[in-house]
Amino acid sequence: MLTVNHLTKSYDGEKMSLTDVSFSVRPGEVTVIIGPSGAGKTTILRSINQLIRDDDGEILFDDTDMRQLNRRQLRQARCRIGMIFQNYNLIEPLTAIENVLHGCLGTKSNLAGIFSMYRNREKEEALQLLQKVGLGEFAYQQCRNLSGGQKQRVGIARALMQRPKIILCDEPIASLDPKSTVTVMDILRDLAVNDGISVLINLHQVDIARKYADHVIGINNGQVVFDNRAKLLSDVAIANIYQKNVNTEGSLVHEF
């Protein structure tokens, strides 16, 4: 499905943000990446769909290396990779249904993008997805009027509209209250179990990771320090992931 081999990245050419990161993600599973702030979780996730260009390594998505694609091929590959963000990144002035429909624009023509032309089948699917995440009656609400939890669910529906094989989630619950956290995580878990989508989630809450993950990858200072089934995530392993002695520089990065 997705295999990352020997991924290496440095933003400034001096400090390594990722060093020889290798792991793989299986379909139908929730894989969680945990690690302290500044460990490199976001960098890994954004390298997968090449929002940032890494320095070295291999990212095999359906047996093609994402790093070798040209612009057009990359765009096409991205159409099948959903992404969820901590701050939702919805188009707030537009309605929920319009935001969800954006998910299928990647495979459509310039004209369709400019004039918002969608097929009936797509419109139907968008509405069903909104209903699936429990927002059927909010379809015509402007997204700026929705609550954080609702926005994140619109974000998930939008990602599903891409018919993704994998969904990448960067701290999807960091801005949510406990109740919305459960709702959102339940939906993500359901996608893996019932729809067979690979779900890769960055988290820094260990308890949530334990509860929802099938597989856990622990990152510290840009290196994989744990890569195993979730039930094997012991307290010792957690202490090892979150230890601070490796490199004091740079591990105190403020999340926002």
């Binding site: 929002l51 963000f85 188009i91 707030e92 002035p93 624009l105 990647g106 993008g113």
Partner: peptide, 29 residues
């Protein structure tokens, strides 16, 4: 406009014309 918005649209594989019409214009109005 937050760069995250445009990045998000790029991450979904949208073409530039669609990004302008669907993301930039609504915020710009």
């Amino acid at each position: 406009l937050s760069p995250g918005i445009i990045e998000t649209m790029q991450a979904m594989g949208l073409k530039k014309s669609a990004i302008i019409r669907q993301a930039i214009i609504p915020y710009l109005i």
